[in-house]
Design a protein around this nucleic acid. Structure first.
Length: 332
DNA sequence: CAGCTACCCCGCCACT
DNA sequence: AGAGTGGCGGGGTAGC
């Protein structure tokens, strides 16, 4: 820890709340001209005092001097690059990437990954991971506005501009600003289960789960009052076990099937049935984690006609099987 | 795994 | 004219 006068209050706060033993070390790396909003996301998710038993957060930067943000203020990171050396997870928030990152930063990132750390980027933070060579041959995403540039600068990266985030195992990238929050909640869900992620989402007053595969573009803001299909989605979640047809959804929403479908895609980036199936899988994951119900029973409770259906859909969303998922979860 | 049916998805286009 | 709407058709997929 640096002995900077600025960080004294912060140090005391952290020292009080670090719990020994099982908690995971998350290092957030602020690169010069960091996006303040992006930086605050992992801090708010992992660094909140409620998470002290699960995560230990270190905000770090390459040099001792304050790091400028893109929004008119600077931040003083209490740690240096050495924090990456024992981090379990490294998060790189977005930054102004027109200046290449220092070789020392690239080396620290590559080193952390080689050591087995989980590498995460938010927004244009992907450019730092790419420059460190961590995205070569992998699928990744970034802010839609910068996706073409990422692909052009790093031809070996398979850039997908159409998703909120990409989970490629030990390397995870997310799209612009708010998608970083979805990814952070995804990490908590992986580490500590759906209940823990939902709890944090509640604390932050955001939607608990937006699956990574959904589109970055949302034609129509979801919060535009009375024309939103949100009530219909809530209605669907309330009756997840039922088999609801798109015609019934359209009736509930007060639209023709065709218009309902169009509006649904515009709001969520995915079609009604695909969205519903994804929600069913998410509920199945929650039940697999929090109960010991047989897979057959879980399938019924989530609205799948059979365990075989559950397996198919489960594989589509999570690239895993229900039993393997539960076992991996219990073993963790 | 094959075959069946019902339903979904979405381009097209006419209508408001 | 332009934007939103909704019926239609048929290839695709889910679900049994």
């Amino acid at each position: 820890m640096r002995s900077m006068s600025l960080d004294r209050g912060f140090v005391e706060w952290q020292d009080c709340h670090v719990s020994p033993g099982s908690c995971q070390h998350v290092a957030v790396l602020a690169i010069e001209a960091v996006v303040g909003f992006d930086l605050s996301i992992p801090c708010q998710v992992f660094g909140h005092r409620d998470e002290a038993g699960r995560y230990r957060l270190s905000v770090c930067s390459a040099g001792p001097q304050p790091v400028a943000t893109t929004t008119g203020y600077a931040i003083a990171a209490p740690f240096g690059l050495e924090a990456l050396a024992d981090a379990d997870t490294v998060v790189v928030p977005g930054y102004e990437y027109s200046t290449p990152i220092a070789p020392a930063i690239a080396k620290a990132l590559a080193g952390a990954h080689a050591r087995g750390a989980r590498m995460v980027s938010i927004c244009t933070g992907a450019f730092a991971l790419a420059q460190a060579g961590l995205l070569d041959g992998r699928r990744a995403t970034t802010h839609w506005r910068d996706a073409a540039e990422l692909a052009a600068c790093h031809p070996l990266v398979d850039v997908d501009p159409n998703v909120l985030y990409v989970d490629d195992g030990d390397v995870l990238t997310s799209a612009g600003v708010a998608a970083g929050l979805d990814l952070c909640l995804h990490l908590v869900r992986e580490d500590h289960g759906a209940e823990a992620a939902n709890e944090i989402a509640r604390r932050m007053v955001v939607a608990p789960q937006r699956a990574g595969g959904q589109a970055q573009f949302v034609d129509r803001p979801v919060d535009d009052g009375d024309s939103s299909l949100e009530p219909t989605r809530v209605w669907l979640l309330d009756r997840l076990p039922e088999r609801t047809t798109v015609a019934e959804m359209a009736r509930h929403a007060g639209y023709s099937e065709r218009s309902f479908h169009r509006r649904f895609v515009a709001e969520t980036g995915t079609s009604p049935l695909r969205w519903l199936q994804t929600q069913r899988v998410l509920e199945a994951r929650r039940l697999l984690q929090t109960t010991s119900l047989p897979v057959e029973h879980v399938a019924t409770l989530c609205g799948f006609g059979s365990a075989a259906m559950l397996r198919t859909q489960f594989g589509r969303v999570t690239k895993s099987t229900p039993t393997a998922y539960r076992q991996a979860w219990l073993a963790a």
